[in-house]
C-alpha cells in the first residue's frame, strides 16, 4: 500500500475541516450582520471585519493542504511515499484540521455577539474584533504546529 493515499487524507482533512469551521463561523456572523443591515444599511463597512474574521481558519487549513500536496508532488509527478511518511503527513494535518474547525465556530459566535454590540454602539466596532482575534490565536497555534510538523518530515 502506498502512503500517498494517507497523505492525501491528511491534506483533505486540513482543508475540509478548517473549511467547514470557517463556513459555520461566517454562517453565524453573516446572519447576525444581515439582521443588523436590515435596520441600518450603512453599517456594512463597519461590520465587514467581524463578518470575515472567522474565514481565516479555512485559509490556514488550505495552506497546510497545499504544502502537503506540493510535498508529495501531486501537482507534478507524485513521489514515492512510504506508509510511515503518509502517516506522518496525516498527523501533521491534524492540529489545523481540529483547531481550525472548532476555533472558527467559536470565533463565529464571538464575532456575532460583537456584531450585536456594534449595532448598538457603532463607535465600539474595533473592540469585539480584538476578542475575535483572541479566539483566533489557537487556530494560529494549530497552523504553526501543523506547519512545523510538516516541514520536518523528510521525503
Amino acid at each position: 500500500m502506498s502512503g500517498l493515499y494517507i497523505a492525501m487524507i491528511g491534506a483533505a482533512m486540513a482543508a475540509f475541516m478548517a473549511g467547514i469551521g470557517s463556513a459555520i463561523g461566517i454562517g453565524y456572523t453573516g446572519r447576525a450582520a444581515s439582521g443588523v443591515l436590515s435596520e441600518a444599511p450603512d453599517m456594512f463597512g463597519r461590520l465587514f471585519l467581524l463578518v470575515a474574521l472567522p474565514g481565516t481558519q479555512g485559509f490556514y487549513g488550505f495552506i497546510i493542504a497545499l504544502f502537503i500536496i506540493l510535498k508529495v508532488g501531486l501537482l507534478g509527478t507524485p513521489k514515492a511515499i512510504s506508509v510511515y511518511q503518509g502517516l506522518e503527513l496525516l498527523a501533521a494535518s491534524l492540529p489545523i484540521a481540529f483547531a481550525g474547525l472548532l476555533s472558527a465556530i467559536h470565533q463565529g459566535k464571538v464575532c456575532a455577539a460583537g456584531i450585536d454590540l456594534t449595532a448598538k454602539r457603532p463607535d465600539q466596532a474595533m473592540k469585539p474584533v480584538i476578542y475575535g482575534a483572541m479566539v483566533e490565536t489557537y487556530a494560529v497555534l494549530g497552523f504553526l504546529t501543523s506547519f512545523f510538523l510538516m516541514i520536518n518530515i523528510k521525503i
Binding site: T56, F59, Y60, F62, I63, L66, V140, F143, L144, F147
Partner: peptide, 11 residues
C-alpha cells in the same frame, strides 16, 4: 507574526 506571514506566502 510568522504564521500570518507564511499564510500570505501560501495563498
Amino acid at each position: 507574526l510568522m504564521a500570518l506571514g507564511m499564510v500570505t506566502a501560501g495563498i
